[in-house]
Amino acid sequence: MSLVGEERKEVIIHLLNYAGKVRTNELVEKLQVSSETIRRYLEELESEKKLKRVYGGAVKINYDREEPSHLTREVSHAEEKKKIGRAAAKLVQDNDAIVIDDGTTTLHMLSYLINKKNLKILTISVPALNVLMDYLNRELFTGEVYFIGGKVQSKHFRTVGTLAEKMMQNFFVDKAFISIDGILAHKGITSYDADKAMLGRRFIEHSQEIIVLTDHSKIGISTFYKVADLKEIDSVISDVPAPKEWRHELDQRGVNWIVGE
């Protein structure tokens, strides 16, 4: 592979987005340069805060070791989330029954659903519930809203837990719009929170179509609790294209990657 230094570093970043980590010996073989050259590239990328060096290679930086609060997430990547929400709303048809997961990305869907007719919306998000009730009171929305009750996580303005899971088992919907904390091609989608991950599985089991909403900061990240494999997902909506190295696996698993505009 005959590439200049900046192109080689770009390859390293793409590989990080694919796997979440890279090994020095594998990079030596792939880029056909010395281990000293690879170490220099990794040092430069670390100084640019694009990765973290570890013994034998490097890993993608994940600044958050726990899920940020709703208020923190609300101001993070707001413009990107708006584009994702608008693209997600385009997938909703009149008369659909849908689940809208909690999260600030899914919240951006709501204003684009006003002109849809006869929707049935289920949510665990308190902010989403407040917005939808306001729409109902102002006659901007004519569908039905169901709140999935359970254990309240006040930091995240949502409900989770076994009661929420049992309530969800009484419903079957057309589409589930899922928020996540991490996505990797070979590991699937993940969450920081065990209760949230389990409830996400119930959404998937009781939905005909699964749509994941994620901004670029979650791509190439794996958090502690697994929600689902990539093959269980129908579509991913993001603000950026899928990493090049993922395209074969996405095609193989029938996952449609949509870029919000």
Rank of each mutant, 00 (worst) to 15 (best):
T24A: 11
T24H: 00
S125T: 06
L16I: 08
H206W: 03
I38A: 07
I258H: 03
K50S: 07
D174E: 13
A194S: 11
E10K: 15
A78N: 05
K50H: 04
R247L: 15
D239F: 02
G200A: 03
R201P: 06
P127I: 00
F203C: 01
S34T: 15
E249F: 10
I204D: 05
E139Q: 08
I114Y: 00
Y41V: 01
L16N: 02
G103P: 02
V240A: 09
V131C: 01
R202P: 00
L132F: 04
Y55H: 15
I204S: 03
L163C: 02
E80V: 05
T162H: 06
V33T: 14
L3H: 03
F157E: 05
R247M: 15
R202A: 11
L140P: 00
K90G: 08
K116M: 05
H216T: 13
I210T: 13
G200V: 08
R201D: 07
M109R: 01
M109E: 00
S125I: 05
F172L: 07
E26T: 13
N170D: 10
S69R: 13
D101N: 12
L213K: 05
E46D: 12
V126N: 00
H14K: 15
E67C: 08
Q153H: 15
D134I: 05
P68W: 13
E67P: 00
T106E: 07
M1A: 14
K81C: 04
E245L: 15
E79H: 04
K155I: 07
H14L: 08
N137L: 12
D181N: 15
D101L: 03
N95E: 15
P68A: 12
E205M: 12
K90S: 15
H70R: 13
L110C: 09
R201E: 14
G200Y: 01
K244A: 13
L113H: 06
I98F: 02
R73E: 10
L163T: 13
R73D: 00
I148R: 00
Q208V: 02
G5V: 12
D94G: 09
L119F: 05
S217P: 13
H108I: 00
L31G: 08
I84R: 04
R86L: 14
E26N: 12
I237E: 03
I84F: 05
K90L: 14
